[in-house]
């Protein structure tokens, strides 16, 4: 199992489009993906779960991955947060 804390850098938060990108990318990995935020746990492959976090700019969350490709999955997903899900210029 690998875990890492990340911060939402998108100014409008983790809204529908980045959430959609996150779920799509995460679903491509075999590993289980859980997002922990203010005591909530959601399945990172569930679009509705991710959206209900309603994570705003600056929100901190922990990514937890477990499975055969956990390392690669974590790196890829962290990179998505870093690149603001490639949506803002």
């Amino acid at each position: 199992m690998v875990r890492k804390k990340v911060v939402v850098k998108n100014e409008s938060g983790l809204h529908a489009r980045p959430a959609s990108v996150l779920v799509k990318v995460a679903s491509g990995f075999e590993s289980e993906f859980t997002i922990k935020m203010y005591g909530y746990h959601v399945n990172g492959k569930s679009i509705l779960g991710v959206m209900t976090l309603a994570a705003e700019f600056g929100s901190e969350m922990e990514l937890i991955l477990e499975g055969s490709d956990e390392e690669k999955a974590l790196d890829t997903i962290v990179e998505l947060f870093e690149s603001k899900f490639k949506e803002e210029n």
Binding site: A16, S20, V23
Partner: peptide, 16 residues
Amino acid sequence: KDILEAQIQTLKDPEV
């Protein structure tokens, strides 16, 4: 496309 993609993901949502 984005709206439809979101709907598709909702249908595919493992938690749902």
